[in-house]
Each structure stands twice: as C-alpha cells, then as structure tokens.
Design a binder for these strands. Structure first.
Length: 450
RNA sequence: GGUGGGAUGGCCGAGCGGUUAGGUAGCGGACUGCAAAUCCGCUUACAGCGGUUCAACUCCGCUUCCCACCUCCA
C-alpha cells in the first residue's frame, strides 16, 4: 500500500509501525452545528482509508475527536442560555446519525475535548516546564514557536516572509511572537459559565492542544497516521506537532494525509451563495446516503471535488446498474476475468486510494458479468465493497407489489400469452400510471417501483 | 506578497512520454412484437504559446484563468 505523505510530500510505502495494527487519528467535527457535505468529504476519505488498511489485512485503531469547547460552541450555548454539553449533545448525536447514513465505519474511540481537560492541563504544564510555553498577563498560556526548531516542517512555511498580522486577532497583543498560539485561554466574560480551573487560573483549552493530548493518550507518543482536511494542515496540525514533539522529544506521527476541499457547482460552499448543504438538506431533497457517498468517494481525495446535483443523478443511475448486476451474481469460484478486475481494483486502492480507478475496475466487472454471466462473481463484489462500502449498502427496499398491480400484471401475462400486444401495451401504460414500471425478458415480466 | 494544488470530450472524473480509463448523456447497431434492460461500435478530450524528444495530454519555460493555506474553516 502506497500513500502520499504530506510531511515528506511524496508517495511512500505504508505499513503499520508494529506490523499489525495501524493507529490513526482523524480530526473530527466541532459540534456546534450540523456537519455539511464538505465535512463529510473528509470523513468519507478517512473511512476509505481505514477500509483500505483493513482490506490489506491490518487492524485499525482509529481515534476521532469531538471538539465540544471552542468559540462557536460556547457562543451557541450561551446564546440559548443552556449548559455547554446540552448544546453540543444535539450535534454529537446528529453527527453519529449522519455517519451511519453514509456507511462510515465507526472509529474505535470518540474522545470529547471536555472529558480530557486534565490531560490537556498536564500537557500544557509539561510545555511550560520545558520552557517552550509562557503565561501572559491575562492568564493565558502560549506556545513559543521560536523555541521549537522544527516549527513549519509540515506546512513548509518560511516564517520570515509572511503577511504576518494580516489576520492576527486583536486580543492577542501580549504574545511574544505573532506565530505563538494559545495552549490555554484565560476566562473572558463572553465565556459565561464555561471554564475550568487550572494552574494559570480559570479558563479553557486552546484548540490545538486537545488533539495532541487525546491522540497521545489513546495512541501513544508516536503513531502511524494523522489525517484531516487540507485546511487543517496549517496551523492546526503544525501546532499539534509542535506541542507533542516539544513535550516528548519524539516523533509524533509517521504519516500525515490531507484531503482537498469540495466545491459546489464550481464555487466554494457558502451560505450567501445558497450552495451550502448539510447531509440532512440533501436527504430531504430525496437523495440517499448511498448516492451521496458514491459522489463523495468517486474523486481522488487530494483533488478538488466539484459537487453538483447532476453528479447525484449520475450516481443514482450508475448504482442501479451495479444493483442489477449484483442481483444476478452468485456464490462460487470466481471466473478468471473477474479475478483480473479484482487485481486491478486492488492495485488502484493501494495506489494512494485511487478510488476512481477502483470504480473503473468495478464497472469493467459489471460489464463483463452482464455479457458473460455473473456466476461466481458475488464474492468479488463483496471484496470490492469492503473498501467502497456502497455496493451492498443502503439499497432501496424492494417494494411489495400491491394487489391491484399484481392483478394487472396477471392480466398482462395473459394478454402476452395470446400475443395481444395492444392490450399488453395498454396494461403497461396503466401500470406505469400507477407508478410502477414493467420490463419483459425471456423469464417473464419484472415490475419495480419507479 | 509567500507557499502549494489545478485547468482533460455535453457533464462528472482517472491517467500516462508512444497502447480503450470509468460513469453519465448523445448517436448508430444487435437483441426485443414494441419498449426497457443488456451487449457491440461511434462522436479522433487533454487552457494558450513556445521548447525538449523519434514521439508530449503526460517533461521544461512563459501566459491566462481557478482553488487552497499564510493563526482556530474538513
């Protein structure tokens, strides 16, 4: 298996450090709102990644954090005048519901930031002891980026040639360097009831510290994989490395992977453009999680993905073609040609998760199975679906034929037996008007809900 | 201004220095009483301009356009 490592900026052979279990950390949601389909692009990418690892016979221990304390969650809770956890619980639940709708395999651990405040405080203390962090006048603690020589190695940023200050928050005037970031933020009025006691006074953790603290707690000081959206590469992941490595003196993560953003109709998703969709929005519009998953995974994760409703329509048709073929597939020894397609499929997924090429192999299998017969191909479909998770998942339930339709079909069968084509066609129209479509084959009529 | 990634046939979307990506749509054919489904074939796509090469969509340079990051957006 080969993957592109953002840290080294090249494709590398990938295998678990311990030879059997991959320990991976994936940056999860900030639970202040329903997640949008751009967020889910990242989560489906991570799902494909863990499935591919499993496809290769390794075990996975995945940790996905839930950021349940930050500016937005605090603002949301305080606006509604409810406790922080009451506010975030709604969105945590929604997030897990959404993951199920997309057939995303659950991670082994979903640590919430608010359950790990002591671990974070301990890590910050360690950084203060080591002299790489300092307390400011207001009781916040900052990481001094100049004290960590490797700072910038992930983002490959040259900090002497930046537009520093362009987006620098006004309330951070007492930092030693512009690049210094908060490990612990002193309590402010706007925080209201939210806050924890610490050696530096009441406050709350900075954003980055949770990931360093929780990943090391569950995965160890050095682990295999860390992933997220490309926007997390800097500053979030850069800062995680700084915090962890400055504290332990060890390499934090072997391989970093980042997925590109999703655009909608060629534009960045934004509420003002009216092209901002949560998963719920799309499901309300009548699209299934399965169709959405198909669209999200059918582009290489490092390339921008342009999400459009026409792509969902294409997905629906392509999936029904797969369904029709799988319907005919049977158990047994796979024919040679089917094994070939599985080989191509395997090469594709192991080549930095090239899912579009993997799909191409799947469709070659479908085409050939339709032409030569699908006997013995079922297991090949199953194997491919270990990675894709879209073949056997979430198919529309086969609707029971209502009695009136059954009666019409029986009538039609009679008419056809008598070669009364006019009557046969009339009945087909009548059935169609009731929302069902009839197809004829050598085996007889098949009727499905439109 | 810095850094990184892009521009592929109607649409979506892979890929490689010379050999069909794939899906979806369209056209023609086979099959069918007719449809549908399925299969076969087709429409000779690689932003523009130069260069390297026997050969470039693929490498190099320039131009145009797009996107992302440059301190809390997956």
């Amino acid at each position: 298996m080969k993957v592109y490592n953002s840290l080294t900026r090249r494709d590398e052979d990938f295998a678990p450090m311990d030879g059997r279990e991959v320990r991976m950390y994936t940056c999860g949601p900030t639970v202040y709102n329903y997640a949008h389909i751009g967020n889910f692009r990242a989560y489906t990418f991570e799902d494909i990644l863990r499935r591919t690892i499993e496809f290769n016979g390794w075990k996975v221990k995945q940790v996905m954090n839930l950021t349940d304390v930050d500016d937005k969650t605090i603002r949301g809770a305080n606006t509604l005048n409810i406790p922080l956890n009451a506010y975030t619980d709604t969105y945590k639940k929604a997030f897990f519901d959404d993951l199920k709708k997309l057939n995303i395999e659950p991670a082994e651990v979903y640590p919430a930031a608010t359950d790990h405040i002591p671990e974070m405080i301990a890590l910050v203390e360690k950084l203060v002891e080591k002299g790489v962090a300092y307390k400011s006048e207001d009781g916040s603690v900052y990481f001094n980026v100049r004290k960590f020589p490797g700072y910038g190695k992930l983002a490959h940023i040259d900090f002497d040639n930046q537009r520093t200050g362009a987006r620098c928050a006004a309330d951070e005037y007492d930092k030693e360097n512009v690049g210094d970031f908060a490990l612990w933020k002193a309590w402010e009025k706007s925080d209201g009831p939210v806050g924890w006691d610490s050696p530096w006074g009441r406050g709350r953790p900075g954003w980055h510290i949770e990931c360093s603290a929780m990943s090391m707690k569950y995965l160890g000081e050095t682990f295999d994989l860390h992933t997220g959206g490309i926007d997390n590469l800097f500053p979030h992941h850069e800062n995680e490395i700084a915090q962890a490595e400055a504290a332990t003196g060890k390499e934090f993560v072997k391989t970093w992977m980042h997925c590109a953003h999703l655009r909608v109709n060629g534009e960045k998703m934004s509420k003002s453009l009216g092209n901002f969709f949560t998963l719920r929005d799309l499901i309300e519009k009548g699209w299934s999680g399965r169709e959405i998953r198909y669209v999200l995974i059918n582009a290489h994760y490092r390339a921008g993905l342009n999400f459009a409703f026409s792509a969902l329509e294409d997905a629906r048709k392509a999936l029904s073609r797969i369904d029709a073929c799988v319907e005919k597939a049977t158990e047994g020894e796979a024919p040679e040609w089917a094994k070939k397609h599985l080989e191509v499929f395997t090469l594709a997924v192991n080549d930095d998760l090239n899912i579009p090429r993997a799909f191409a192999a799947l469709f070659e299998l479908v085409r050939e199975a339709n032409a030569k017969g699908a006997a013995g191909t079922l297991d090949v479909f199953r194997k491919m679906d270990k990675v894709l998770g879209v073949i056997f998942f979430g198919k529309a339930e086969k609707a029971e034929l209502p009695d009136d339709i059954k009666a019409l079909l029986a009538e039609r069968a009679e008419a056809r037996k008598a070669k009364n084509w006019a009557e046969s066609d009339r009945l087909r129209d009548e059935i169609a008007a009731k929302g069902w479509s009839v197809k004829d084959s050598k085996e007889g009529q098949t009727c499905t809900k439109k």
